[in-house]
Amino acid sequence: MHALVVDSDAAESSFLSAELQRHGFDAQECVTGAEALEIHDKFDLLLLDLRLPDIDGLEVCRAVRATSDIPLIAFAAGDHGLDRVLCLQAGADDCLAKPYGLRELIARIEAVLRRSGPARTAPRPATDPLARGSLCIDPLTREVRLNGRLVHLTRKEFDLLHRLAADPHTVHSRARLMTDLWGYPAGYVPDARASRTIDTHVSALRAKLGAPDWVLTVRGVGFRFGRA
């Protein structure tokens, strides 16, 4: 598991990296938001201090979340509730106030990683490629091609597209998608933030596939594949 620690304080960054390595992570450090935006897609976990020398940490959160579903935990200075709320609204999966306890941080990392993976009850995906018109989805290589052209998707974008295309005549509810793909408990009722998460991924899929009718919204229910 590769973790990126983004903190302008070299001492804090080195200490946190060492602790992560003690818990089995392969940690790398960087000190600027610009560098984090350039390399974050090579990692499995992002730990981000909001106080950066070049870019506001909230802007980094938004930029990362616009293109990636990497698990992201942010650190805010002091116990200011508004900062944590803004951080979560910007796309962070969790936010801790500094100073924080290492045991709490590790527990929160484990919780975020659990939520970022498929739920245990999720159906085992088929391994045969799916052909839907000009779209080909290969679950083994996790590649998507449209008219033979490779379409670059994030992990969650691929999981969402594959789920919809594998059962194209079914309307998939937001609650079921959050349970099966984001690891939320069965019976979970999506709140506004969870709904925005799904909407963001659907919008990204439509943009990358070049047309909105690949994924259709069924108002008040959920989504279904649009070109069955």
Rank of each mutant, 00 (worst) to 15 (best):
D49W: 00
Q28G: 06
L102N: 03
A92I: 00
A36V: 03
H40K: 01
V218C: 13
V144F: 13
G24W: 06
A63Y: 03
S8Y: 04
V189M: 14
L48K: 07
I70V: 14
R115K: 05
A18T: 02
L135D: 15
A77C: 10
L88D: 03
P212D: 03
G81R: 03
T217M: 11
T179I: 09
A66Q: 11
E29A: 06
V218L: 09
L135Q: 08
P190N: 04
S203K: 15
R227K: 11
E110C: 10
T200D: 13
C87V: 03
G101L: 08
L135A: 12
A34D: 12
A107M: 09
R22C: 04
A11T: 11
K208M: 06
G187L: 09
D79Y: 10
L150A: 15
A131R: 14
L146Q: 01
E19K: 02
R108S: 03
T141F: 13
F225G: 05
L88C: 06
L209H: 08
L82C: 03
W182F: 13
T141N: 11
L161W: 10
P212F: 05
I198L: 12
A90R: 00
F75V: 12
G101A: 05
G133L: 07
T200H: 10
K42M: 09
W182M: 09
I106Y: 11
C136M: 14
L205T: 01
A76Q: 02
L205P: 01
R84K: 14
A76V: 14
T197R: 06
L105F: 05
F225P: 02
I73L: 09
A74Q: 11
M178K: 00
L135M: 06
V31F: 10
A18Y: 11
S17E: 13
L47Y: 12
P129R: 07
D128N: 12
I109Y: 04
P118L: 11
D180M: 10
R51K: 11
R224S: 05
R103N: 04
A63D: 03
R132L: 10
R227Y: 09
K208G: 04
G101Y: 06
A11V: 11
A175Y: 06
R145C: 04
A186N: 07
P71T: 02
D199G: 08
I55H: 01
A211E: 15
H172E: 05
L130K: 01
C136N: 12
N147I: 08
V171F: 12
P118T: 12
V218G: 10
R108V: 11
R149H: 15
L150F: 13
D199W: 11
D9M: 14
L47A: 06
D69T: 02
A228Y: 06
P168R: 04
I198H: 07
L86M: 14
D83T: 01
V144M: 06
F25K: 01
V215C: 13
W214R: 02
L205C: 05
E104N: 09
S134K: 15
D79C: 12
A207V: 08
P185V: 01
D56C: 06
G91K: 00
L45G: 00
F75Q: 04
V189S: 15
M178S: 03
Y184I: 08
